[in-house]
Amino acid sequence: MEVLKQELKENIIEQLNLEDITVEDIADNDVLFGDGLGLDSIDALELIVMLDKNYGIKLTDPKEGRAIFGSIEVMAKYITEHRTK
């Protein structure tokens, strides 16, 4: 799980072009959207693509994504339970 969380942080920074943010800046329970990392609706769509590409998880309802992308902790848990690759 710790490895996955680290991997998620690295991928999020890379995929979402969070240039001035480091892995250390993101705590496992930090809110990612809204006030947290300031992510927006395009970032949410981008994370849906990431879930599909890296973990074989297909989300078709963006609203579902919002819950899963609550924090790194929540994401890691969901991925662990649902990953197909």
Partner: peptide, 9 residues
């Protein structure tokens, strides 16, 4: 393929 919404926009 995994087209990127952040590119497409």
């Amino acid at each position: 393929y995994y087209p990127s919404p952040a590119v497409f926009v």
